[in-house]
């Protein structure tokens, strides 16, 4: 296959940046999208041009490091991560536009690499159960209904890639935040800090400059792990009931 690639290049956070067009020859349909970029980068290196920088690590769809806004969609045309996207999803002669995630809270670092540490700070605000190592009850002491455990697992699957923010027209991080709030609100272990957690995580999410949710459902449609917006509804419930009943002023 022969493809035209329109790629966002930006030297660093301060640089203006712009699109540069490359031609990728001899692309095999069995390549993953990132392998296609690897080949392009080797060619650029041999020519003495700076290779295109992009985030990636596990390349099996679980670490959440890869990003890329491909042809107007986060992680490209399939509902998966970019590393699991294969070139058979494209056709010969196609032009592919590749952009970084765009959000105030995800500033561009270089080329297609963005800084997603805002997500870490949201988790630091309360995405945990405050138990120290040791001194915890036996694992089977509190039975948890299978349905609840499964629902918690559905939410816990989030890989923190940021596709939800990238897809949302408001750059909202509610799917991400709600997935963690939901997981811990569902489980008995999360009950003690339930109210404070919802309040603090929402406050941090706002402080990072993410947008508000307008329930378009784009996040759910693009989430590579299929995290449902029922979690957002649950977070809203958690938050509203927390603010009216908690002891936090």
């Amino acid at each position: 296959m022969k493809l035209t690639l329109k790629i966002w290049r930006q030297k660093n956070a301060a640089d203006q940046g712009g699109f540069v067009t490359y031609v990728a020859d001899h692309v095999s349909k069995d390549m993953s999208f990132l392998e296609m970029l690897d080949v392009l980068n080797d060619q650029l290196t041999e020519k003495g041009e700076d290779p295109v920088h992009f985030d990636h690590d596990c390349r099996e769809g679980i670490c959440g490091m890869c990003s890329l806004y491909i042809n107007g969609k986060p992680h490209g045309p399939q509902q998966t991560t970019t590393c699991q996207l294969h070139m058979r999803s494209f056709s010969d002669g196609e032009t592919i536009t590749i952009e970084p995630w765009r959000a105030k809270a995800f500033p561009v670092v270089k080329d297609l690499v963005v800084n997603r540490s805002a997500f870490d700070r949201i988790i630091q605000a309360g995405g945990y159960v405050s138990v120290n190592t040791g001194g915890v009850p036996d694992a089977n002491e509190i039975p948890i209904s299978k349905t609840v455990a499964d629902l918690a697992m559905d939410a816990a699957q989030c890989i923190g890639c940021g596709a939800c923010v990238a897809a949302c027209k408001n750059a909202s991080a509610m799917l991400f935040t709600s997935a963690k709030v939901s997981q811990l609100a569902l489980l008995p272990q999360g009950q003690v800090e339930r109210k404070t957690r919802a309040e603090k995580m929402v406050a941090q999410m706002d402080a990072e400059g993410f947008g508000a949710c307008t329930n378009t459902g784009a996040c759910e449609a693009e989430c590579p792990k299929g995290i449902s917006i029922t979690n957002i509804a649950r977070m809203n419930r958690e938050y509203f009931s927390a603010v009216v009943s908690s002891d936090n002023m």
């Binding site: 945990y128 159960v129 138990v131 190592t133 040791g134 915890v136 009850p137 036996d138 694992a139 089977n140 039975p143 948890i144 209904s145 299978k146 455990a149 499964d150 918690a152 697992m153 816990a156 997981q183 811990l184 489980l187 272990q189 999360g190």
Partner: peptide, 22 residues
């Protein structure tokens, strides 16, 4: 054995039986 206790206390959603046990 202590690892499992620790992880459950942290809210790790391990697979469960219908009776609610791991």
């Amino acid at each position: 054995v202590k690892i499992i206790d620790q992880c459950v206390a942290q809210g790790v959603p391990f697979a469960r039986e219908y009776g609610g046990l791991l």
